[in-house]
Simulated assay, not measured.
Amino acid sequence: MPTPNPAALEFLQTRRSRPAKTLTTPVPDRAALMPLLEAAARTPDHGKLEPWRFIVLERPALLRLAAATEARGADAGIEPERIAKSVLQFSDAHLAVAVISSPKPSEKIPEIEQLLSSGAVCLALLNAALAAGWGANWLTGWMAHDPVFRREALGLSEGETVSGFIHIGTERAAPPERPRPDLGAITTWVTE
């Protein structure tokens, strides 16, 4: 018979990301952030490859990334409105953790499983931050998918990608609840 953890289940059933633009200071310091990273690193990882890593982006780094976003967006011909929105993702932030997908060569573990593990790290970090009482949000944006930005602004190696920027801070105002999926419409029961 399983041993239920009702508090954990209730948290997962009611968890809610907080819009990054509503997050402000204070943000977790290194001592408060380390347990969140530790929780995220407990993500399923077939083959124990650790096909992901963290880049903690503090305020000065975020401001540098905002400037890099503006410059790279202009060079890449991104629409000015899209650039402006993307710049705000960094310039308005006080702390974000970039979760980097860093696949390892493996004959047994396909790259897609390693990529999925990196996405699971994003969700685990997001949930750990929320469970610790912080506001948090998982963002990407065109910058996460731009190879030049990844290489020049974040220093990523060939083959590394950004799975997400997890913004963490103090929530200014709780957003209203949003509609949730209709489980009947997305669930198939296979009985034979």
Rank of each mutant, 00 (worst) to 15 (best):
residue 93 A to D: 06
residue 177 E to N: 05
residue 80 P to L: 00
residue 18 R to S: 15
residue 83 I to P: 07
residue 20 A to L: 10
residue 17 S to E: 09
residue 89 Q to K: 12
residue 44 P to R: 03
residue 165 F to M: 04
residue 167 H to V: 08
residue 86 S to V: 02
residue 31 A to K: 07
residue 58 E to G: 04
residue 147 P to H: 07
residue 140 T to A: 12
residue 118 S to V: 03
residue 111 E to R: 11
residue 70 E to G: 15
residue 190 V to L: 10
residue 63 L to M: 15
residue 77 G to P: 04
residue 53 R to S: 15
residue 4 P to N: 05
residue 86 S to Y: 00
residue 38 E to L: 12
residue 115 L to F: 03
residue 74 A to F: 03
residue 133 G to T: 04
residue 15 R to L: 01
residue 13 Q to A: 13
residue 130 L to A: 10
residue 154 L to M: 09
residue 81 E to G: 13
residue 160 E to S: 08
residue 48 K to L: 15
residue 64 R to G: 15
residue 123 L to P: 05
residue 44 P to M: 12
residue 97 V to K: 03
residue 142 W to S: 10
residue 178 R to W: 10
residue 129 A to H: 02
residue 183 L to K: 02
residue 12 L to Y: 07
residue 141 G to P: 05
residue 130 L to E: 08
residue 99 V to M: 01
residue 164 G to S: 04
residue 25 T to Y: 13
residue 76 A to W: 03
residue 144 A to G: 09
residue 33 L to D: 14
residue 97 V to I: 02
residue 51 P to W: 10
residue 124 A to Q: 12
residue 144 A to R: 00
residue 8 A to Y: 11
residue 67 A to P: 09
residue 86 S to D: 05
residue 67 A to D: 15
residue 105 P to I: 03
residue 162 V to W: 00
residue 106 S to V: 01
residue 116 L to S: 04
residue 53 R to V: 11
residue 42 R to V: 11
residue 13 Q to H: 11
residue 167 H to R: 02
residue 16 R to C: 12
residue 37 L to N: 12
residue 77 G to K: 02
residue 81 E to D: 14
residue 5 N to A: 11
residue 118 S to D: 03
residue 105 P to S: 01
residue 138 W to K: 05
residue 148 V to P: 06
residue 38 E to V: 10
residue 85 K to V: 05
residue 36 L to N: 14
residue 54 F to A: 08
residue 59 R to D: 14
residue 119 G to T: 03
residue 59 R to S: 14
residue 49 L to D: 12
residue 65 L to K: 08
residue 77 G to I: 01
residue 119 G to C: 01
residue 3 T to G: 11
residue 98 A to Q: 01
residue 12 L to I: 07
residue 52 W to F: 15
residue 101 S to I: 05
residue 39 A to E: 12
residue 79 E to T: 09
residue 163 S to G: 11
residue 107 E to V: 08
residue 22 T to C: 12
residue 71 A to V: 05
residue 138 W to D: 08
residue 182 D to P: 09
residue 11 F to T: 08
residue 122 C to D: 00
residue 180 R to T: 14
residue 161 T to S: 14
residue 138 W to L: 08
residue 181 P to I: 07
residue 118 S to K: 03
residue 143 M to V: 14
residue 155 G to R: 05
residue 186 I to A: 13
residue 2 P to E: 08
residue 162 V to K: 01
residue 157 S to A: 14
residue 57 L to I: 03
residue 112 I to C: 13
residue 66 A to C: 06
residue 167 H to E: 04
residue 85 K to Y: 07
residue 75 D to Y: 09
residue 5 N to F: 08
residue 106 S to A: 00
residue 184 G to C: 00
residue 189 W to C: 09
residue 144 A to F: 04
residue 127 N to M: 02
residue 100 I to R: 02
residue 63 L to T: 15
residue 109 I to S: 00
residue 154 L to G: 08
residue 73 G to N: 04
residue 8 A to D: 07
residue 131 A to Y: 05
residue 83 I to R: 00
residue 62 L to N: 13
residue 5 N to I: 03
